[in-house]
Design a binder for these strands. Sequence first.
DNA 1: TTATCGACCGCAAACGATTGCGAGAACGTT
DNA 2: AACGTTCTCGCAATCGTTTGCGGTCGATAA
Lengths: 339, 339
Amino acid sequence: MRSQHVTIKDIANELGFSVSTVSRALKNHPDISEETKRLVNELAEHLRYTPNPIALSLKNRSSSMIGVIVPEVVHYFFATVISGIEDVAERNGYSLMLMQSSEQLSKEVTAVANVMKGRVDGVLASVSKQTNTYEHFQKLMDEHIPLVFFDRVADDVDTTHITVDDFGGAYSATKHLIGQGCKNIVHFAGPQNRKIFRDRLNGYRQALENNGLFFKPELVVAADTLDKGAFETQRLLAQGVVFDAIFAVNDFTAAGAMRALKEAKKAIPQDVALVGFGDESITLMLEPNFSSVHQSGYEMGQKAMEHLLMQIHSEDKLPTEQVVLPAELVIRESSMRLS
Amino acid sequence: MRSQHVTIKDIANELGFSVSTVSRALKNHPDISEETKRLVNELAEHLRYTPNPIALSLKNRSSSMIGVIVPEVVHYFFATVISGIEDVAERNGYSLMLMQSSEQLSKEVTAVANVMKGRVDGVLASVSKQTNTYEHFQKLMDEHIPLVFFDRVADDVDTTHITVDDFGGAYSATKHLIGQGCKNIVHFAGPQNRKIFRDRLNGYRQALENNGLFFKPELVVAADTLDKGAFETQRLLAQGVVFDAIFAVNDFTAAGAMRALKEAKKAIPQDVALVGFGDESITLMLEPNFSSVHQSGYEMGQKAMEHLLMQIHSEDKLPTEQVVLPAELVIRESSMRLS
DNA sequence: TTATCGACCGCAAACGATTGCGAGAACGTT
DNA sequence: AACGTTCTCGCAATCGTTTGCGGTCGATAA
């Protein structure tokens, strides 16, 4: 059961004009007399006429819809990005078509196919952890559908990327810990097939080497969840590995580490200082509040949408840009050893 | 710059058939010879023809799009709901058009207006905290656009609601605290213009009265954020109000209360037991882990979408349903006084 | 030979809106 | 009186697809 929308034709019939006259009257076209415009506009108002956007889409070959493909909506960071996208889109008269890949390549491919049928004017995407081929995105490019990647980018596809300065954020976090007198800094690292996680590791490493410390492979541990963070921290302590700081690839891992440290009666930050990445809300919920590298998903979403709009509105292909948003270290109790 | 999609007409011209023949051939219509079908399908495949969904929308007066209106995407609960909606929608060939009201009535009205122009086949909505009039939703109903509310429902609008058993959840949380020996249970309550918050308060009250305790208005405090939870807890302590448990309307408020209690050196749960609502991830991140009423947003999203699909596919208006999902208390350290 | 009948395919309208072009009326200009 | 203008408005094509109705052609039956 669908609603019966009032159309231009309804107005035309009622008034005895042709649809073209009504259309022009509504757009204030000079060819139409004031009297006719008045009649048409009054009736349109009375009938609550609104133009059918689907018909307009067909005519104009543009839908005012933006396809958004994210790995998971439930990740706080992605949720903030979506929020930023939505705000800019809404302000510019665009709507969002949301699809999630659930970190699966197959669903990502489906989503891209969906989007390629011509439903959308452009696409914003962040690739799934599973993605190792970029053909589907390349097809999008081949069809000349504007595409902008954010956060998790497809390195091979030649289009605009919006990322945060993972390297710089990791660098300043590590440097900060060194400044606090830490000598043996553990890094809980994420999967190295993703550039963002490699960058964080590299930033950590570079900061060590630039500040008179050695990079010790045994202090780099694969851990990117709360449970792994707790488990690996316990393991390090049990194995008697000497360390006085932990820089975690994300806040959940840091939270896990904190739990294990507390259980082992280690003082934070005196025995072990702690810095996370992401500056999620839990940094303020745990005690001590812990330091983290702030990355604004909201801002990323805004920037991504703005760049996409520029591409959509431009006549010819714009040069691709690599936008890197600053990642700012927020220092809190968990890493303040000096006063 | 838009892509040049291949259309049925392209195939028709290439092969020298009319568009009608091509259309029928693609749909395996009996009027078309096998030979023609083969030619058409081969060329369609070769040209990677995909039907233009916008043209189909216009023709069929249905867009296969569902409008989703939520207060905030960044709330974990809503993110899980969206995830549930998306899964069911995707499985049924529907796409999501996402809009957020940012808890503002004005943006909610805009979103509804957007959706009413005929872009969508149905709407799923959860109303903003600010919303106190339901005219905009009523208009949707008047236009016969299928509408299902979830979580925060508009009581006045006669349509299907999907909620969790807020009353039951609050009841069992409170009863549990009483069972643990608590005599003076504080309730941090949400805005009472929302039914869900009223229900939680009522569940709390009913549990008290059914279990031999008096309902004391001074123990009900308006607080629904982390900061307010912390602040009001401090205030209660400072004013010397006697209480041995807190049941908070959501987990963030509970987290705030926990912080204030820790600062005041109150033992949890010995001095004050604590139960939240929502079972968000922080319940496991804080120490002690705190009890909470679990509500499955994912399931709610699925149910909402399923009910909406039923309405969309039905010829005539279905009777409205009030679906109440169970809210299950998850007991953790923060409220286990007896062993 | 003619009527009948499948088999196969095209015309055109329709969905709702836009727009180039042309047409009719009224008016003024030589 | 003949012509040119200006003001208003309608026709019809277009966007991509579907579908009722009709038309053509060859074959078979009468």
